[in-house]
Amino acid sequence: MKIGIPKERREGERRVAASPETIKRYKAIGLEPVVERGAGQGAAIPDDAFAAAGAILADTAAVWQSDIVLKVQRPIDEEMGFLRQGQILIGALDPYMNKDQVEAYARAGISAFAMELLPRTTRAQAMDVLSSQANLAGYKALVDAMAEYPRVLPMMMTAAGTVTPAKVFIVGAGVAGLQAIATAKRMGAVVTATDVRPAAKEEIESLGGKFVGFIPEGAATKGGYARPLTPEEQKKQQEIVAEHLRAQDIVVTTAQVPGRKAPRIITAAMVAGMKPGSILFDMAAESGGNIEGAEPGKTVETENGVKIIGAKNLVSRIAPAATVLYAKNLLNFLQLLIDPKTKELKVDTQDELIKGTLLTQSGSVVHDAFKPAA
């Protein structure tokens, strides 16, 4: 079977769905990798590296003729025309925000797997693209915020006097938030963080941060995400956050829930109460924003001298590292679809990981969250 790795064509996307290491692994399990020329350019992987690993270099059309196609982001309109019946498509397909495209996969007769729908289980950790990419994004968010900050993060004691450490506040202690906490601590900042999930307080403190806020009863969902807060809970959380923001130098917000608009946590009134020179970094800007006034891919400066940075495909800006992890996630998942004895495709819908990610099969939308209403 041929496995195709096209060049990503969405604006700003530099990652690629395979690495030379995973190409070697695909060859070892009996697959024939076909990589589009130039696919790895944005991730600092030259064509020669893919070829040396055993891949066939080809043009766009030839890559899309493969039995299995691996993608980072969902196909653009031009690529949708290449889909053919019986083909397998695997990638971060963003189905909640693109339900019409899910139906198009069904009409094309392909089996489409959305990696962000992977159940959050121990067995799935090696395939969890959300976690691997969020980990890097949390690091990059803190680094970018620090680059905009006009002072320094660590305490510095010199003959001329002492520079006090920056105060960094992380909103949301998921994978991205925890990495942002760890990065800020390594840089010498005084770090605080908040989250509404019960496990968050212990996780924050384990990294040297101080927990701020309160934890509502039953705040975490089965999938490990935070449930929507009640109006009363939202008010209490906002009061705590608003008071804490006044003394902060850098704030990174990470709160996102798949399939829903990002919760608004920091209002314009809260921003107005912050110190001049403070930096706000909104990692959820593309999904609605945690911070009022944040714009994806832009830096906005308020009247009181606070900068609001809106993330846009943040992890793509560290594509070489992100590609290594993403490609390995796909490799681990794809091995579930290959019979180890016959080396043939075997889509076992009784497997919870396969069932949880499978959007379409045999001309129908099969995922419960996207089936047309009866």
Rank of each mutant, 00 (worst) to 15 (best):
H244R: 13
P150G: 06
A114T: 11
L353M: 15
G305K: 05
S287G: 05
P165E: 01
S132I: 12
D77G: 00
K140G: 04
M146E: 04
E78L: 06
D100G: 15
R151K: 13
T122Q: 08
F370C: 04
N313M: 09
K235N: 11
P150E: 08
Y139I: 10
G172N: 04
Y326A: 09
A268H: 02
L142M: 14
D59R: 07
E292G: 05
K235C: 06
V271C: 07
Q237P: 10
A219G: 12
T357N: 13
K140I: 03
G81S: 03
R14Y: 14
V129C: 15
I291R: 04
R84H: 06
Q256K: 11
M80Q: 02
A176W: 00
E239W: 08
Q234V: 11
Q65P: 00
K371Y: 01
P198H: 08
V16F: 04
T323W: 13
G174M: 11
L142K: 06
Q234K: 15
N135Q: 12
V168N: 02
A49S: 11
I45V: 12
N313S: 13
E78W: 00
S206E: 13
I45C: 10
Y225V: 10
P198V: 10
A134Y: 05
A17Q: 03
G174K: 12
D100V: 12
M127S: 11
T22R: 06
F333K: 03
P263L: 10
M156T: 02
K167F: 01
G91H: 05
M146C: 08
R37E: 09
A17S: 09
A53P: 02
P150Q: 07
L358V: 08
P6L: 02
L280Y: 09
R317I: 13
D348V: 13
Q256T: 15
A193L: 10
I308G: 11
L334Y: 07
K343H: 09
K185L: 03
L83F: 00
V300L: 09
R197Q: 09
A242L: 03
E13Q: 10
V241I: 15
N332R: 11
G289Q: 08
G213M: 06
Q125T: 11
G218A: 10
T360Y: 07
E217F: 00
D77T: 08
P33N: 02
R260S: 13
A321H: 12
M156S: 01
R84K: 04
S316Q: 14
A247L: 07
A268N: 03
A173L: 05
K298W: 06
Q256C: 14
A137G: 03
V257G: 10
L70S: 02
A184H: 10
G38F: 00
T60S: 12
V168R: 02
Q41P: 00
L359W: 14
N332A: 13
E11R: 05
A61E: 15
Y225Q: 09
Y105R: 00
E116H: 02
Q73Y: 01
A242W: 01
A180G: 08
R9L: 11
H367Q: 08
V191Q: 02
T194R: 10
A173C: 09
T357R: 14
I291P: 04
G273T: 04
A124R: 08
P258D: 15
K27Q: 02
G172E: 06
E103M: 06
Q361N: 09
L334K: 07
A189F: 01
D59L: 07
T230M: 05
K355Y: 12
A108G: 08
P231D: 05
T342I: 06
R151M: 06
G223P: 07
Q361G: 03
M187E: 01
E243S: 14
R15W: 00
A189V: 01
T323S: 13
